[in-house]
Nucleic acid binder design. Sequence first.
DNA 1: ATAATTTAGTGTGACCAAAACACTTGTAAT
DNA 2: ATTACAAGTGTTTTGGTCACACTAAATTAT
Lengths: 263, 263
Amino acid sequence: MSNQTQTAQNSADHQELPPAEKEFLANYNPADYERPSVTVDIVIFTVRDNDLKVLLVKRRFAPFQGYWALPGGFVKMNESLEASAMRELKDETGVENVYIEQLYTFGDPQRDPRTRVITVTYLALVEGQQIKTLQAGSDASEAGWFSVYQLPELAFDHHYILDYAHKRLRAKLEYTNVAFQLVPEKFTLTELQRIYEIIWNQKLDKRNFRKRLSIRERSAYPEANPHQMLEELEETRPGGNFGPTKLYRFIDRVERIVRGIGV
Amino acid sequence: MSNQTQTAQNSADHQELPPAEKEFLANYNPADYERPSVTVDIVIFTVRDNDLKVLLVKRRFAPFQGYWALPGGFVKMNESLEASAMRELKDETGVENVYIEQLYTFGDPQRDPRTRVITVTYLALVEGQQIKTLQAGSDASEAGWFSVYQLPELAFDHHYILDYAHKRLRAKLEYTNVAFQLVPEKFTLTELQRIYEIIWNQKLDKRNFRKRLSIRERSAYPEANPHQMLEELEETRPGGNFGPTKLYRFIDRVERIVRGIGV
DNA sequence: ATAATTTAGTGTGACCAAAACACTTGTAAT
DNA sequence: ATTACAAGTGTTTTGGTCACACTAAATTAT
């Protein structure tokens, strides 16, 4: 078993295939094998009304017609998984341009009564005020935000998937900055703290929270906690019946939206 | 958008479907939709000869015939993804009964020149001495362990997948006990330390390493670091040209093999 | 037999992060 | 003026991480 190196051919350039492969491709018929269906399902969270909410759609068709379910649908042949997830989210709910990362792939043979369906799930986050109105798409008769603590009966194994996503979100708050995805562009530190408190479902100490933020800024994980992530703005927001509060901005918010590394 | 609760029907019992769903199922034809192929690919690591090795197979057929690739193959219709991964690993290499956890799902439309292939990848770990001989299966003409630092050209996007798995393994050593999967049943603390050093590719301080182990034992993450995970055995191993060394055992090793939580 | 070699095994101090904890200040409403 | 409310701010204790050096046991070479 040697560590021999192959003759040079980049695994990425499919343009120049050797003759044997060309012949194989010519004879290859994708219909020769029975294949499972592949869907994407999206667990999209927001924080709103002091509560962690998830977006669900009411199924217009069988199976589980009339049940609430995670938005999702079949992956198209020429579309990446992530693009699929974003398209389904937009089609079924009108929500677009959000942070999204892959969650897990569920493939129990019995999870869909129709046929074998493997679903690649995504975790998405969106700031609460950004979504004005939800629009139900062709596959969904209704769409709505539900408290993760008061859920209706869900279709398929979606309850399990949602649980899994909730756990992952909780865990990711500990070592990443995903929480910034749940806050408007300009925010107060108290608002940011509320995000953590709601997702972890516990009160946090104000001073410790702020100290941790400043420590995280100069932390050793530039990927998860980029330097200088918080910018203190000149601007303040007038308090209610108390003093004005400082506003902050998240530097490089746009980049962060792109894609979670997920290591 | 209310939080209405549905009439009782457990999403798990597909036995009693309402008439509308029954009718839908009767008319449902899985061939109506074009579907991608789904494969599993396994990145199985071992530590051996002071090096982190990965198991590769040489492809017997096109595409990428003759190239080294991760073991894997098509998911069968009635088999879970995890079972698929274990079956392919056994079929192509003879390796079985190992720790395995899902890694990521890669689904770029162009990643396979034949057709759309979505691959669910798994990270597996096995102790170096446990595998006596590798046996190449029907799809692989050869199977062998390669240093992750000296890899041949790989088929498809397998180089990328392998990189991703390596990163994940490195990260998981920090907060879980997966390293125990890479060590024989009875081991010395120095052997365990070598595992960390090899995967992180850096020397560790002996005293700090041992202290960290004892701290981890009473740590606050029972899932990742179960209490009392290390048992000091009476038995010792005679040293080379030095004194005898204490042997340890990993308590509940069997349970741990089952499945990574992966949150 | 003596010396040299090799690895096992062990403790302390400095630093840093996390957690617990309380008061002052500015504004609006009364 | 008094009250109500949330913003903003610092210290102490505790525990983990890291850097660091010597002794003991056995084998090998002389």
